[in-house]
Simulated scan of single mutants.
Amino acid sequence: MKFVIQRDQLISSVQDVMKAISSRTVIPILTGMKIEAKESGITLTGSDSDISIESFIPAEENGNVNVEQIEAGSIVLQAKYFPDIVRKLPEKTVEIESDENLKVTIRSGKAEFNLNGQDAEEYPQLPKLQTDDSFELPIDLLKSLIKQTVFAVSTMETRPILTGVNIKLENGNLTFTATDSHRLASREIPVTEAPGQLPTVVVPGKSLNELNKILDDTEETVEISVTNNQILFRTKNLNFLSRLLDGNYPETSRLIPEQSKTVLHVKTKELLSTIDRASLLAKEERNNVVRLSTKGNGLIEITSNSPEVGTVAEEITVPSISGEELKISFSSKYMIDALKAIEYEEVKVEFTGAMRPFIIRPANDDPILQLILPVRTY
């Protein structure tokens, strides 16, 4: 195998693929990165058996030559050393060559590294997803779906299914839902040209976080395909494959209150920064509790106290408030996460009493929904 490649192109592909490589894997060869050279270009692969990432560097694209002098072949290189070497090479191009004894030479300018490679035949074959059930989404939309839900997955392995995001496509609507049983985040969007039904799947939150980091805003769309235990996100030069979580996701729709007793309209930034300030004194408490009380005359008060530290109180004038008076306590962290995820200037908060879950959504009723369980403080 041999090729000469633009260093910048190689670096950005290596960085993407590294996100799937873990030093803690039980299969030794997976601590390495697979490099495969063909006429058409170079494919880099990384996997930790939960997620697998393939990044393709085309030999030529839009009239630019990325890779030349290609002699086909493949090799696996230690991911512990290879990325750092590539990053620190002196010149704009890199020549990589391997011989039949799996010895690899990396040259750039006057620098030359000789590494021991591993046989690419021993690298596990990635499952090839052949499926008719696939649909496309604009990348920016997928990224916002992830951002508005994934923070609410559980970090506790006690109920593994809750560490993932539930993705459901039915009747032309795609829904992402995440919950850790104390809060819930969901968003629904219409999808044109989608297959009628897709199996409902649960994708690990960790996978979606990595996908979100890798997806390039410059690409237009991502194709999503599902098989029984894998989901594939594919853009022009990237394949991102994740395992799915086994088990039944809880039926979350019944958590969402049908009617509300108190409704606030409030400016998102203002509520966010007030709760943020109130939480400064709530750090000692396990869940950083703050309290919201309605005051009449379009005022609400946000307070927090911790006996050893002190108290804080701040009033906000809200655009509108209707229904019963209310005092409710909740985790400031959950509320801050939820408000940050809703990218709208004004939100509507609907309460059904001091001990019932409450809902936050954009004031314009865009189908983004955040639900939080209150905290007992007496």
Rank of each mutant, 00 (worst) to 15 (best):
F151Y: 13
F151W: 10
L211G: 05
I161K: 02
V202H: 00
R243D: 04
D132N: 14
V201C: 03
T192S: 15
N166H: 08
Q230A: 06
K147R: 13
T175C: 02
K143N: 12
E220A: 13
S225H: 09
L238C: 14
L145A: 02
D217G: 10
V203R: 00
G247P: 07
N212I: 04
D246G: 09
L211R: 00
T155A: 12
F135L: 14
L208C: 07
N239F: 12
S207M: 01
L211W: 03
L215G: 06
Y249D: 01
A152D: 01
I167N: 01
A178N: 03
V202R: 00
T235S: 15
T252S: 07
S154L: 00
D140T: 14
V191Y: 06
K128M: 12
L198E: 05
L137R: 04
T200N: 15
I146K: 01
R187Y: 02
T177F: 00
S225V: 07
K213D: 10
F135Y: 10
L244N: 07
E136Y: 06
S181V: 04
L245N: 05
S154Y: 02
G247Y: 10
Q148F: 03
N212A: 09
K213T: 09
G196A: 13
S181F: 04
P190Y: 09
D140Q: 15
E170L: 09
V150G: 02
V191R: 05
I231T: 03
L141N: 08
N166I: 00
T221F: 07
Q148E: 14
K168G: 00
E193N: 14
P195C: 10
R183Q: 10
Q148R: 13
K128T: 13
V153P: 00
D133V: 15
E193V: 07
T200H: 10
G172H: 14
K147W: 05
E136R: 09
P138D: 15
V153S: 02
E136D: 12
P195V: 10
G164M: 03
F233M: 07
R187H: 06
S144K: 08
E220D: 14
S144C: 06
E193G: 11
L129H: 08
V202D: 03
Q130G: 10
S253N: 12
V153D: 00
Q130L: 12
P195Q: 15
L238D: 07
R187P: 01
F176Y: 03
L174Q: 00
E251M: 11
R159C: 08
E251T: 13
F135G: 06
K147N: 11
I214R: 05
L141W: 06
E136S: 14
R254F: 12
L169W: 05
S186C: 11
P199H: 12
V222T: 12
Y249F: 13
S225N: 07
D180N: 10
Q230L: 13
L245S: 02
L255C: 05
K128V: 15
Q230I: 08
T163E: 00
S242D: 06
G196M: 10
L162I: 06
